[in-house]
């Protein structure tokens, strides 16, 4: 995957990586990217990114699901009006189970698809130099467009390795 030139720092400790991200922000570096083997809160909080919009997608999916469930049950009952067991043709209490399950099903699908799309877009928007260590035991902080002046800042934060990437 292609990425911009910049400075890459490798950290052993999530707290150090978080500190480096904060220091880079304070030094005026707006675009700071990171990769790590686990969701370390120290780094993710330091990134100061807004909450993911997946919640909104999931809510829309759940509402579509509820409408589909309602349409399926009530629509079928009205299309074929047949009284069963002395119950009304449109028996909402009985239909609520179907409506609930379809709500969860479509909400779950939109959540999953939203996560895949969000991860895909996020990966493309914040490209990092590839390093298998970032999926195993190290945290990478990448400052695209940064120059050698950032080296000292990253080393001070505790980076074990700092290098320019082109």
């Amino acid at each position: 995957m292609r990425h911009e030139p910049g400075v890459l720092a490798v950290f052993k400790d999530p707290s150090d990586a978080g500190r480096a991200v904060r220091a880079a922000h304070a030094a005026g570096q707006r675009d700071v990217r990171a990769a790590m083997p686990a969701p370390f809160p120290e780094v993710l909080e330091a990134m100061e990114r807004p909450p993911s919009i997946i919640g909104a997608l999931t809510l829309i999916g759940a509402m579509v699901g509820a409408s589909l469930g309602f349409w399926l049950t009530v629509g079928t009952a009205l299309a074929l009006p047949m009284s069963v067991g002395g119950k009304q043709v449109v028996s909402l209490p009985a239909f609520m189970m179907i409506i609930f399950e379809v709500t969860v099903l479509v909400g779950g699908f939109s959540n999953f698809v939203g996560m895949l799309i969000g991860a895909f877009i996020g990966r493309r928007k914040s490209r990092m130099p590839e390093d298998p260590r970032f999926l195993r035991d190290r945290i990478g902080v990448f400052l695209p467009g940064a120059s050698g002046s950032m080296h000292a800042l990253l080393r001070t934060a505790g980076a074990e390795e700092v290098r320019d990437v082109s």
Partner: peptide, 13 residues
């Protein structure tokens, strides 16, 4: 790839 952006969406989902 383990980027912070991926973790952000993953955690929420």
């Amino acid at each position: 790839r383990g980027t912070a952006e991926e973790w952000r969406h993953h955690g929420r989902a």
